[in-house]
Simulated assay, not measured.
Amino acid sequence: MDFFFSRIFGNQLLFLLGLSFTNASYAAAFQPAVPVFTFLLAAIVGVEVINIFTKDGIVKVVGAAVCVSGAALMVFYRGSSLIGMGGVSNAVGENILDDTWSSNSYTSQWLTSTMLQYGVETWHLGVICPVGNCFLMGAYLVIQVI
């Protein structure tokens, strides 16, 4: 029972940490990767059978590769955003969005300081957290089948 709660708690915690370190676009872009992680983990465990010589097997592998390459592109692309990230200003000119979404929890501060020691920036941490979220959700779904 503890395993169940720790998996769900860790899953949601990583998603929320990813939201606090990046923006909603990145967090939403990674959520379609849950079926890919589920497929890969099910194939590793042996629940999903992949026959590369059939049309279905080729489509499964190509689909997983396309999804993983799209997620990798999101991780490595650091260009300018199409819609500005400046935040919303009030009548006085203060930035409301940055103050509202600042993270003050102990867990996120500890995780940020630990990762910064090893050269991982908060933007990278914000991208790693949704990937961990998708992995944990995929693992939870595979464990339910076993």
Rank of each mutant, 00 (worst) to 15 (best):
D2V: 04
F3H: 10
F4G: 05
F5K: 12
R7K: 13
I8H: 11
L13P: 00
L13C: 10
L13F: 05
F15G: 03
L17P: 01
L17S: 06
L19Y: 10
S20K: 07
F21Q: 06
S25Q: 08
F30W: 11
Q31E: 12
A33D: 03
F37I: 02
F39D: 04
L41A: 11
L41P: 04
A43F: 10
V45W: 12
V47C: 09
V47Q: 13
I50R: 08
F53G: 07
T54H: 09
T54G: 02
K55W: 12
D56G: 09
G57D: 00
I58L: 15
G63Y: 11
V68K: 01
G70T: 00
A71P: 00
A72Y: 14
R78T: 12
G84N: 10
M85K: 13
G86L: 09
G87V: 04
S89E: 15
N90T: 03
G93N: 03
E94F: 07
N95F: 02
I96Q: 04
D99S: 11
Y106S: 08
W110L: 15
W110H: 07
Q117G: 02
V127L: 15
V127N: 05
V127Y: 07
C129H: 01
P130L: 13
N133S: 12
C134F: 04
L136K: 00
M137G: 02
V142H: 02
I143A: 09
